[in-house]
Design a protein around this nucleic acid. Structure first.
Length: 701
DNA sequence: TTTAGGG
DNA sequence: CCCTAAA
């Protein structure tokens, strides 16, 4: 494809980190090894850089790190491009364990430092290039809440100018008493990604993107103290407030100096580059994307699966770029911008993520639950409300000492599209952005709770019933802000689609969660939810999922998703987030599970008895002609499982029990056809009776 | 598009 | 069920 060799980038100064490959990805990776090996991407570079930075930050000044990034940013567009991915994932949930004296702390890595720096560099660089930004596309606007410190006004904090960037890192909260968990402080963090258009040729705008992440982090003692904090391999309880590390300090970037961190860093960074999905994404979807022609060039991503639960993993995958080199990338962005422009004349605001997703959630089952939520800013009102409701909800649960503490670190505001004249002042730009954000937030938001990626719809359930009371689940618990469904109360505990929602919205509310759920479920390392069984309501969402009519969108690049976004008014915005972009294109709907009924099994067995294995298409046609949801692959798979089921002890079988008689026939047929490879033979060639008579005990082997 | 298999 | 390599 476009890039064949990493050497093209000419980065010799950075060593590429060794990226551990996830077991699952290994297999695929092997197949495409040639591709992967020969293709380099900014991802790797970033990864290496990130790792380097991390390392350096620990030992030496972080300045070096920033320089490194700067270097890349200026010299390589690809890298620059990728950077936007970087900040989010990092901060999202890099909880670390840090040793301070004899005490250990868990904290979030302030990865923003990295991105921050890089951003600055980029930004300045862009300016130096005399790039006029006519159109700014705010890809994401983050408002994160952090607990533990003082409240920071998100809005106030965020600035679009570089000066702020450098300073923003400072917001901090001095005191972190062990009892501070009673207070939920909201820290705001925001990131702005600005994609400017430059007019070079008359009609050929050149895109220059620069991201300006502004992030403020506050430690959350609550989360840290909790021994049940799911987020990390947290150490234990004792958390001295005294030397709580402030990662705002650039030098704090890296925390521990053990290899583990380093490796994690690499992993992280690697992933980051790949995507920047607002929420979790199924690895499968990722894989799909990766395998799509658009992503072939960045195969490494597949290998970067974090061995972590979805909570940590998903956020890493953010919107990925379909452009890999400068040219193509610019072209893509250009297209995107154009398309978007078509859709939005003025200050159109589009939610890219289909809502606002919480960056991460941490909790602690400790007694004291966070109660005070301070609105860091009017804008965050919605977000705060969310956390509040959540907390309140759980309140009714303290019957046992089981309190669930939530710490919503941040909610990401969806993508915004803003267009202002070149002559616009910075101040006006700020105001414009502010208006856009306000319009979004002001239109009303609903809070969505995602558990294991599944949207929990039944508001009447208790947290315990929902499975949220379990810390294990919290790991995969997520909150999201989504367009308010307006006066219509959101559907509760029913699988009904919100009637008033537009089609897109419906998808947002149902499909997305669905995907998420599946995603998390797919995660190899994701532990099963202990309470899965009790959270049936969640499963009900499956039913709400529309038929996979959008499968075609699997490989849809961002651009397409964007294009697909219908022109909408501001009002519509609230209801129709640009979700499709990330959700639809990246998260492909997984088919709902439809266990085979006994009758179906019977039909299948019968068909196979006659047709044999290896003729699944015929089997489908014969026995499942009208079952459109059963593909020949499904039948094949089912047969496979049937054979397996038949071989195992009845006690080991699960699901709807299949009559032994059928299983016997399965074994018989399987045995028969295993020997009679002559599948093409007459369909009835294999005397059905004969097969049926075959004893079930017949060893298939 | 189907098959055949691994996940 | 998903995802793919092959056919």
């Amino acid at each position: 494809m476009v890039f064949k060799k990493r050497q093209d980038h000419g980065f010799n100064g950075f060593r590429l980190p060794t990226i551990p490959r996830a077991p699952r990805s290994v297999r695929r990776g092997l197949r495409k090894k040639t591709v992967e090996d020969t293709q380099i991407c900014a991802f790797e570079l970033l990864a290496s850089i990130a790792g380097k930075l991390l390392c350096e930050s620990e030992s030496s000044a972080s300045s070096n790190a920033s320089e490194g990034i700067d270097l890349l940013a200026c010299g390589k567009d690809a890298v620059k491009q990728e950077q936007e991915f970087e900040d989010k994932p990092f901060k999202a949930e890099w909880l670390y364990q840090r040793n301070c004296g004899d005490s250990s702390f868990a904290f979030e890595m302030a990865s923003q430092n990295i991105s921050h720096k890089s951003t600055l560099k980029e930004f300045s660089h862009a300016e130096s290039d005399d790039v006029l930004e006519r159109t700014s596309f705010i890809k994401s606007f983050d408002c994160s809440q952090k607990t533990g410190g003082d409240v920071k006004s998100v809005i106030c904090k965020s600035k679009t100018d570089s000066e702020n960037y450098s300073s923003k890192v400072e917001g901090g909260s001095p005191q972190f008493g062990e009892s501070s968990d009673a207070n939920v402080n909201i820290e705001a963090e925001r990131r702005l990604e600005v994609v400017g258009l430059k007019n070079e040729d008359a009609n050929k705008p050149n895109i220059c993107s620069s991201k300006v992440p502004t992030e403020l982090f506050l430690e959350s003692p609550a989360a840290i103290n909790s021994d049940s904090n799911v987020k990390l391999p947290l150490r234990q309880n004792s958390v001295p407030n005294a030397c709580f590390p402030r990662h705002r300090n650039d030098t704090k970037l890296g925390s521990r100096d053990d290899d583990e961190n380093l490796s994690r860093c690499f992993k992280r960074s690697t992933k980051l580059k790949a995507f920047r999905p607002p929420t979790r994404i199924a690895d499968q979807r990722i894989r799909k994307l990766l395998t799509s022609k658009y992503w072939k060039v960045a195969p490494k991503l597949k290998d970067c699966e974090l061995p972590r639960s979805d909570g940590g993993l998903k956020p890493l995958y953010r919107k990925r770029k379909t452009c890999h080199d400068r040219q193509s990338r610019q072209k893509c962005q250009r297209d995107i911008l154009f398309k978007r422009r078509k859709l939005f004349d003025q200050i159109s605001v589009v939610t890219s993520d289909g809502g606002f997703s919480s960056e991460s959630v941490s909790n602690s089952p400790e007694k004291g639950m966070t109660e005070d939520k301070n609105d860091s800013a009017a804008i965050l009102h919605g977000a705060n409300g969310v956390s509040s409701s959540v907390l309140g909800h759980q309140a009714s649960f303290h019957s046992k000492d089981s309190h669930v503490k939530f710490s919503i670190k941040s909610f990401r505001v969806p993508e915004l599209f803003i267009e202002v004249p070149e002559t616009a002042t910075v101040g006006s730009l700020k105001r414009t952005i502010m208006e856009a954000v306000t319009s979004i937030l002001g239109s009303g938001l609903d809070v969505g709770i995602l558990l294991q990626g599944k949207k929990v719809r039944d508001d009447n359930r208790t947290l315990m019933q929902t499975g949220i009371s379990c810390k294990d689940n919290l790991d995969s618990l997520g909150f999201m802000l989504e367009p308010n469904t307006m006066q219509t109360p959101p559907p509760i505990c029913s699988s009904d689609l919100p009637p008033l929602l537009s089609c897109d919205s419906s998808q947002l509310l149902t499909r997305s969660p669905e995907n998420l759920v599946l995603d998390s479920g797919i995660s190899d390392t994701l532990p099963d939810l202990p309470l899965t069984n009790s959270s049936n309501h969640v499963d009900s969402n499956h039913d709400t999922v529309s038929s996979p009519t959008d499968m075609n969108d699997k490989t849809t690049p961002d651009t397409k998703a964007i294009v697909a976004v219908p022109a909408m008014s501001m009002e519509a915005l609230a209801v129709v987030p640009l979700n499709q972009k990330t959700r639809r294109s990246e998260l492909v709907q997984r088919r709902t599970r439809r266990p085979f009924s006994v009758s179906e099994v019977e039909a299948l067995v019968h068909a196979v008895e006659e047709l044999g294995t290896g003729r699944w298409r015929d089997v489908k046609l014969r026995a499942f002609e009208n079952a459109d949801h059963r593909t020949y692959v499904d039948l094949k798979d089912k047969w496979k499982t049937l054979v397996h089921t038949a071989k195992i002890a009845p006690q080991q079988r699960r699901g709807e029990p299949v009559p032994q008689e059928l299983l016997d026939r399965v074994l018989a047929a399987h045995s028969y056809w295993s020997q009679h490879q002559a599948k093409p033979q007459g369909k009835h060639q294999a005397g059905t009776p004969k097969i049926m008579e075959a004893p079930a005990e017949v060893p298939i082997e």
